Simulated scan of single mutants.
Amino acid sequence: MAPPGPPASASEPVFTADFDSREQWLAGHSWAYPDGGPVNPADNKLDHLVEDPSYSRSGVFRATRRRDGRWDTGLLTTEGSPEGFEVRAGDVLEARVRLPEETGAWPAIWTWRDGGQEVDVFEYHPDNPDLLELSNRVRGTHLYHRSPSVRPGGWIRLRTEFGARSVVWWLDDEEVFADGRGVGSSWHAYLIVNLSVCAGRYHPAPDAGTSEMSYEVGELRVFRPGG
């Protein structure tokens, strides 16, 4: 399959992530978590969200073990930030990501608004070392995609088109999933980039000897074809 070209009619991105920007991103707080955080045990997470810039603002999203059994974790969201950027139907997100190596790590790039509107650009768990989880929770579709380029510590390129009629995912310039459902023409949502830590219900919790984990987002841009 031929690699996709640049998004139609969009030579410049409408959003280029600067994770250190306090205008673009809010750190350590998300309404995708109960009461905005800092914890979310019902979702099988050991997270304790922190605002500390060393956990997210460099583009390296970190988690460190706490004495109470939870993990201080990095999360950034455009929700509540001064700019309040939202992805819209038809937008195309491109990102370059270094996957984590440690068991229990749960990185993701996803969207959220008003209790839902979630589309997962990707989720990953190193206990399934070659598998990416791609989900449109707005319309109930998902794919578990296996690839030899997906591996702990490896770099991958992601691209997701939030189509009104079909959400389409690419991995390393190859289309891997078109869900045929889409998000609807009026859909819009905020971006979240974070590293969660598994509590053990669906994926193993961190090994006892692990005290820190991380993954990196080297680039994240959003294009708006025709915009």
Score class of each variant (00 low, 15 high):
2 A>C: 08
3 P>Y: 02
6 P>Q: 13
9 S>T: 04
13 P>S: 11
14 V>Q: 05
20 D>K: 08
24 Q>V: 08
26 L>C: 07
27 A>M: 01
29 H>M: 05
29 H>I: 01
30 S>L: 01
33 Y>N: 00
36 G>P: 00
49 L>N: 00
54 S>G: 14
54 S>P: 04
55 Y>I: 03
55 Y>F: 15
58 S>E: 11
59 G>E: 09
68 D>C: 13
77 T>M: 07
77 T>Q: 14
79 E>R: 02
79 E>T: 01
80 G>M: 05
86 E>S: 04
92 V>Y: 07
93 L>C: 02
94 E>K: 08
97 V>A: 05
101 E>I: 10
101 E>M: 11
108 A>E: 03
114 D>E: 15
115 G>Q: 12
117 Q>N: 15
117 Q>C: 08
119 V>D: 03
119 V>T: 11
125 H>E: 10
125 H>M: 12
126 P>Y: 09
128 N>L: 15
132 L>K: 10
135 S>I: 14
137 R>Y: 14
138 V>Q: 01
138 V>E: 04
139 R>I: 02
141 T>G: 06
143 L>E: 14
144 Y>S: 12
144 Y>V: 07
145 H>S: 13
146 R>Y: 11
146 R>C: 06
148 P>G: 11
148 P>S: 15
150 V>C: 07
152 P>T: 04
153 G>Q: 14
153 G>V: 15
157 R>S: 15
158 L>F: 10
159 R>Q: 08
162 F>L: 07
163 G>K: 00
164 A>T: 03
166 S>C: 08
166 S>P: 02
167 V>N: 10
167 V>F: 10
170 W>M: 03
173 D>R: 14
173 D>V: 09
174 E>L: 10
174 E>H: 11
177 F>T: 06
181 R>V: 03
181 R>H: 13
181 R>G: 04
183 V>Y: 02
186 S>F: 10
188 H>C: 12
191 L>G: 00
202 Y>P: 06
202 Y>L: 10
203 H>W: 15
206 P>Y: 07
210 T>F: 08
212 E>C: 02
221 R>V: 15
223 F>P: 00
227 G>N: 02
